[in-house]
C-alpha cells in the first residue's frame, strides 16, 4: 500500500523500572510486541519490562494507559529529534 508522504509514527518508550511491579500488562497488550519482561530484578524484586523491538513502536501509547504503576510513557520520536 502507498500512502504518499504519510510516514509511520514511531514512539520512544520510557520505562521507570523502579516503580514496576511486574504485572506484565504492557508486554501482553502492546499490539506490536515491543516489550518483554527482563530477567533482571528491580529493587522490589519484580521483573520490569524492557524495550526489545524499539522500531516496532507505533506510538499508540496503550502501554502508558494500561500500566497501573504510571511507570511507562511514550514520546513521539519525531518530536524528540526535532526538539533535540
Amino acid at each position: 500500500m502507498r500512502f504518499g508522504k504519510l510516514k509511520q509514527k514511531t514512539g520512544i518508550v520510557h520505562i521507570n523500572k523502579l516503580w514496576c511491579k511486574g504485572c506484565g500488562f504492557c508486554v501482553k497488550y502492546c499490539p506490536t510486541g515491543v516489550l518483554e519482561l527482563s530477567k533482571e530484578y528491580n529493587h522490589k524484586g519484580y521483573h520490569p519490562p524492557y524495550v526489545k523491538h524499539a522500531d516496532q513502536c507505533r506510538l499508540c501509547k496503550f502501554c502508558e494507559v494500561i500500566c497501573p504503576e504510571f511507570t511507562i510513557y511514550v514520546t513521539d520520536e519525531e518530536e524528540e529529534n526535532h526538539s533535540a
Binding site: H14, F25, E64, F70
Partner: peptide, 29 residues
Amino acid sequence: ENPMSEFLRMERMPHIWCPGCGIGTVVNS
C-alpha cells in the same frame, strides 16, 4: 517528564496498590 505529572502528585509515587491491580489503569484513563 512523565506526562502524568500534570495529573498526579508525582512526589507521592510509587503508590500503594498491588501488582496487577486495575485502579492505576482507571486513573490513567
